[in-house]
Design a protein around this nucleic acid. Sequence first.
DNA 1: TAGACATTTAGATAATTATCTAACAGTTTA
DNA 2: TAAACTGTTAGATAATTATCTAAATGTCTA
Lengths: 88, 88
Amino acid sequence: MNKTFKALSDNTRLKILELLKDNDMTAGEIAGHFDMTKPSISHHLNLLKEAELIFSRRKGQHIFYSLNSTVFQDLFKWIVSFQKKEDH
Amino acid sequence: MNKTFKALSDNTRLKILELLKDNDMTAGEIAGHFDMTKPSISHHLNLLKEAELIFSRRKGQHIFYSLNSTVFQDLFKWIVSFQKKEDH
DNA sequence: TAGACATTTAGATAATTATCTAACAGTTTA
DNA sequence: TAAACTGTTAGATAATTATCTAAATGTCTA
């Protein structure tokens, strides 16, 4: 869980996730949305990938990135466990 | 949202939240669960408080900390927005 | 009101992380 | 197969963050 939150604890990475919500995108397209060098974006993509929040597939010269919903479900469960419990 | 994730991106702070899930606790009781000085724990409590994940109330010499469920609900909404959408 | 106790604040240091430039690696096409 | 394009890896630097010790603040009780 900690690795997930670490990956989410950066504005650039949150914005990348928002972008991928709409469409899968190539590394270059993603980088185009930021005022930052490609290597920096590549680093952020790698962290998101290690946290299993996204995955990548190569298509020719391009590498496409997509959301990986699996970990979002774990995150979901984690949060539910903090919801107020009713008295019984 | 970023502030929330930053607050959650540390193992000590995650463990503090887990502790508070069961019972409200004083700063000292919380510190007793960690191999770390009280000022360090105090710092973590402050970050959690600024992120509105917990709140505190003084009772005599003691300060009790509790979970603040409000932000957990925002977090919940954020995650739901990443759930896979069905085709339509 | 002095002393003891619980906790926080301040300031310094060490560890981690984000970012950059330069160089490398895979893929396509002329 | 060389050149062009897309993207990553490596290594350095700067910024952020976690942690510590020392000192301060707030509250209770003798």
